[in-house]
Write a protein that binds this DNA or RNA. Sequence first.
DNA 1: ACCAGAGTTCGACAATGTCGACCGGCATAC
DNA 2: GTATGCCGGTCGACATTGTCGAACTCTGGT
Lengths: 255, 255
Amino acid sequence: MPGPVQSIERAAAILRLLARGSGRLGVGEIAASLGLAKGTAHGILRTLQGVGFVEQDKASGKYQLGATLLHLGTSYLDVNELRSRAINWADALAARSGEAVWIGTPLDGKVLIVHHVFRPDDSLQSLDVGALLPLHATALGKVLLAYDAQAAAALPESGLEPLTRRTLVSAAALKRELAKVRELGFAADVEEATLGQASIAAPIRGYGGLVVGAISITGAVDRLCPASGRPDPVLAGSVQNAAQMISRDLGAGRW
Amino acid sequence: MPGPVQSIERAAAILRLLARGSGRLGVGEIAASLGLAKGTAHGILRTLQGVGFVEQDKASGKYQLGATLLHLGTSYLDVNELRSRAINWADALAARSGEAVWIGTPLDGKVLIVHHVFRPDDSLQSLDVGALLPLHATALGKVLLAYDAQAAAALPESGLEPLTRRTLVSAAALKRELAKVRELGFAADVEEATLGQASIAAPIRGYGGLVVGAISITGAVDRLCPASGRPDPVLAGSVQNAAQMISRDLGAGRW
DNA sequence: ACCAGAGTTCGACAATGTCGACCGGCATAC
DNA sequence: GTATGCCGGTCGACATTGTCGAACTCTGGT
């Protein structure tokens, strides 16, 4: 196949760098990180600035992400079929379970949150749409791993980052967990991402039965796992049911 | 100055086209819209696909925005200084006024919503962060216009799009309105964007006193304009006060 | 006042992306 | 069932285009 356009790849690399670096970066730092000449990096940055993808802090001369990206990002939400089909079911699930609902899709070895319904009762919660969560420490991620052999194979054998003292960090333990997920049809995490919080997730299938995302509820451990430290089967059933309804809307056939 | 990088500009144009087009587009349509050869458009699209900025629908072969953009967009929120300084004050304003709060910044002849606090009482509201609102029909936009001569000059003399039957569509009427905004120090719109809804907005100033954004409350007309169809001065004062606090945090000097 | 480091500019080279014609499917029309 | 258009994808030659690296300027610190 004919070559991809290098300058665009480089521009994308710069944007990702700025997103990861969580702050402003200078031309020199960017050029060094990507192995480019300073002048080259500058030219790309100036172009990105012209289209509004990056902004320059006039005081320090450093660069950061630009406002246009926010608009493009939310425009993505409008065309995302998974999200638009799932919204109604997510609201219903939140109402029935009384917990916050997330919908996630795999992105580059992480889980991207594409929808978030606040827990019905109190409304002082931060919005997590657009956030990237690790695959191995969240119920959403475990579901995606369990039904995507490719993603599972790409996981490192060790060195999984522990978010809490309960995070699974060994590949063997995770593998057992994934087998259990496939057997039960849903995944759970109990204080593996955040202390005091648990989640239950189920797979969403698209056309052809392929798993394209997952839906989960998240809340306090004692509500999701009443006694015994195992997820409440009624709640798990609700999540699975919501996932099935969404899958049906997506044309997933008889799954 | 040395030329900007064309391929990046073209890639950005494609992304904007996809964001505007609100749906999937084919290679041919994109190439025609931008005056490019089909092969060229294809190469750029394939590169954008490689970096996750666009996705291809396998069934139809058409392209749409990609998930990576969502993550980049929300990463922008993390580094946006206006938003991060304003969040606490926005929460306080929402609590005191009992209304939904927006924070907006100018972007390319529109208002970009960078923060949104739900109305405290009921929580069944859609999230508008990332949305682009017109300048002439919203309180946020009027504030930005009133204090940015350049943006005001760029407005068309006529042909302002009417969103409701109360939207100001003549340049003269808008001009008078902006003069009033400058005099009072805040802007209002009463059913000019959505029937039954009103807003009150005040300018946020950054370093040097420059207006960098605006904050507003939005709610039912009878709550914001109790009798007489004019905005409640107490609520307007609250909005102005929040704007001043944020401006101070941004280092706006004595404004 | 000097120096160090930042972002920015400049010009030449050739690597790079662009163009336009060509292929292969799929769907529709006849 | 065949023909036909449409659409996405491919390929190779040309020259436009982006890249490099050195030189410039300005700010801030010493």
